[in-house]
Amino acid sequence: MPPRATATRLLIAGTSALLMLFIVGPLLRLVLEAGPMSLGRAFADGEVRASILLTLGCATAATLLGLLLGLPLAWALARRHFPGKRLVQGLVDLPVVVPHPVAGIALLLFLGRRSALGGTLAELGLEIVNHVPGIVAAMAFVSIPILVSGAREAFLGVDPRLEKVARTLGDAPMTAFRRVTLPLARRGIIAASLLAWARAVSEFGAVVILTYNPKVASVLIFDRFTTDGLPGALPAALALLLVALGVFLVVRLLQRGEGR
């Protein structure tokens, strides 16, 4: 092999190894620092169990909400030309660049009891701020852009002429979508949903402002860290890390098995 090619390979291998160390190192350090015994303590702690269940439930709700509202938009962005399309695309991506505490404050102003929408919803019996819907709203705000972008890419990957063929074979537009486009885009949509879900699970900044209580896992960990220091936060941190990673891996494995 020429020396230049060898040098290039070594450079790529070196930088990649550094990056892997940067990602895996802190997580591994956390696991080693907490130790396996702390995991048992964490799961024996009712507050930790409740916060993890609340986190998983709210992240799932936020992802389902994203699918419900985001899939039609993702399809339209992939397939249709309409006035203001670029603006809509930019608006959908906006939450990605908004710092999450800022997003929390914005949501508080928009959905709080003093706002028109929040006030109306509260009168209808749907309390947002400092209630579970507030957590779902904050999680949805930060995760939906990931879902919409991923689903749009998945739809773009399906040749629109396949739908045309389905139409000439007798399918109405929605039927062609259900029988052809959706199955072909499914893997991409599931991957986008998984990323959005993971993003929702990890959310802290917006949630802590909108709903401090009941506490999701990230807020509980922060709470324990500020009151009890590192030893207090570590078991809950380890438990959340392992649960999130476990769900992530199971879905990925199921997806891979289905693709075979």
């Binding site: 000439t168 399918d171 109405a172």
Partner: peptide
């Protein structure tokens, strides 16, 4: 298209 009885 679905009501034209056309193959493509």
């Amino acid at each position: 298209p679905e009501r034209r009885a056309v193959g493509f």
